[in-house]
Simulated assay, not measured.
Amino acid sequence: MTSRTHTRLKMMRFNATRMTASRAGLVLMAAVAVTQLQGCFVLGAAAVGGTALVATDRRTAGAQLEDQTIQFKAQTQIDNALRGNGNVNVNSYNQQVLITGQVPTEAYKQQVQQIVSSIPNVKSVLNALVVGPNSTLSEQAHDTLITSLVRASFIDDKQLYSQAFKITTSEGVVYLMGIVTQDEADQAAAVASGVSGVKKVVTMFNIITPQQLQDMYSGTAKTPITPQGTPPTSPASP
């Protein structure tokens, strides 16, 4: 083998090595790119998931748990005390408690009030119990229908986020609870009032500013979203 041929062979091997290294580099870069893209997708999914959790309910997780605890304790104690006398329902939102239904006497109504007021962490109580006979199954079904119609109306309204509201209907009276801005509160009350079968709308909102709402969704809120809010704007009447 001549020296010239030997030199050519060395150059061919060197070029082959460079090509292999180059391909390896491209493969490595592609792998890194795919990994980075996958990372972006994972982060994106996490971000979307996180937003969905926030968007579902404007209360903090702790506030939701507290409301569930209040409802359970109140309902259990009321059922034990009344022993089947009456039909009482308890709803808690941001530690504001709404009591609806019927009881046979004023004494029972006051007893229920005392039970709920004595439960730890209850901030306020709206006792909307009616003294009289229990509602019939037909009347209860009608209330359920009204609640569904109000919810559907909120979903259709582009100015409202329906999941920000807790809706309860008793004897045709609609009770709205939630953490909302004043504009949302006014719009929700107006929309609910226009639903067929609604006799009256009672609001029990925690009013926040548009900036607080923006901070809530951007994750920059400096304090837990448990604002002081405002008392019910229109008291319920039996």
Rank of each mutant, 00 (worst) to 15 (best):
R4W: 07
H6E: 10
L9T: 11
K10V: 09
R13V: 10
R23E: 09
L28A: 15
M29A: 13
V32C: 14
A33N: 09
T35W: 10
L37W: 08
Q38K: 13
F41S: 15
V42G: 01
V42F: 02
G44A: 14
A46L: 05
G49M: 15
T51Y: 15
T51V: 05
T51R: 08
L53E: 00
R58P: 00
R58M: 03
R59G: 01
Q64G: 01
L65N: 11
E66V: 09
E66W: 12
Q68G: 15
Q75K: 15
N85H: 12
G86V: 02
V88R: 04
N91L: 07
Y93E: 00
N94S: 09
Q96W: 01
L98C: 11
T105P: 06
T105S: 15
Y108D: 15
P120A: 14
V122M: 04
K123I: 14
L126D: 00
N127Y: 06
G132Y: 11
P133G: 06
T136C: 05
E139F: 11
H142Y: 08
L145V: 07
T147R: 13
R151W: 08
F154P: 00
Y161A: 00
I167S: 01
I179E: 03
V180I: 14
V180D: 03
E184T: 08
A189V: 10
A192H: 01
V202R: 03
I208W: 00
T209F: 04
T209L: 05
Q211P: 05
Q214Y: 12
Q214V: 06
Y217M: 04
Y217L: 04
K222G: 10
I225S: 10
T226F: 03
T226Y: 03
P227G: 04
G229T: 06
P231E: 11
P231W: 00
S234H: 11
